[in-house]
């Protein structure tokens, strides 16, 4: 008998008393009771608590703010689906004047290698949705967010989030996400509390997390 059959048989025997399948109570909060403004304020509060840097600007100023945040950075990687207008204030790649970064685009046609990503200083991605109550930003691998590896290997992650994509509670975010998409849920920069439970930000993931929220 295969291990599969064996184990399924064992479970069948273990459940010989045929336990009832209980009804699942779902009395916890599943929709937000907050205004958009309150959610934004709560998300900022949580992210700052996690030691992320947060910037809130009108959507029209996205490109200018990104150029400002990336000034002095030598190289940046972006996913191929990142909205073009966000990068419009950066001089074209290669010109390299005024301390502007070289921009590498990761795409299905040209996937950057691990070594190339390791040599890059920062990554700019969009986000799928964010949960204000827990300070969590979700990436789902869609073209504006890219492969999981590009938001992992560079030491600095600049994440651009539309204020309209901020929900309050986790069930609202789960309802928006596609389960089978490769996802990364991010709540602050990487951290450890393994030494005497003292929190240290910055271990293996990006040590710096900047969040740019567009209103």
């Amino acid at each position: 008998m295969s291990a599969r059959e064996d184990i399924l048989n064992r479970i069948g025997a273990a459940l010989r008393d045929a336990p009832a399948v209980p009804d699942i109570p779902r009395n916890y909060r599943r929709v937000s009771a907050m205004t958009a403004e309150q959610r934004l304020e709560q998300l900022v509060d949580r992210l700052v608590d996690y030691k992320a840097s947060v910037f809130v600007v009108p959507a029209a100023e996205a490109a200018g703010k990104l150029a400002e945040l990336l000034a002095g950075t030598a190289s940046v990687v972006v996913p191929h689906g990142l909205p073009q207008e966000w990068l419009s204030a950066l001089p074209p790649a290669g010109t390299d004047d005024a301390g502007s970064p070289a921009v590498a685009v990761d795409s299905p046609q040209r996937r950057l290698t691990v070594a190339e990503l390791d040599a890059v200083d920062a990554v700019v991605t969009a986000a799928a949705v964010a949960v204000s109550e827990t300070g969590t930003i979700m990436l789902d691998g869609s073209p504006s967010q890219g492969r999981r590896i590009i938001s992992l290997v560079p030491d600095r992650h600049v994440c651009v989030l539309r204020a309209a994509d901020i929900v309050e509670v986790l069930p609202e975010a789960v309802a928006r996400l596609e389960a089978t998409a490769p996802q990364t849920w991010i709540s602050g920069p990487s951290a450890t509390s393994d030494i005497e439970l003292e929190r240290v930000e910055g271990v293996h993931g990006p040590r710096t997390l900047d969040v740019l929220i567009l209103q």
Partner: peptide, 25 residues
């Protein structure tokens, strides 16, 4: 889980995957 284990509102990273995603991971 995060509130019960580390006493955090959410842990820094959660990864989710379903089988193989072509080109990713």
């Amino acid at each position: 889980l995060p509130r019960s284990s580390t006493g955090e509102r959410m842990n820094p990273y959660t990864s989710l995957w379903t089988g193989v995603t072509p080109g990713d991971g």
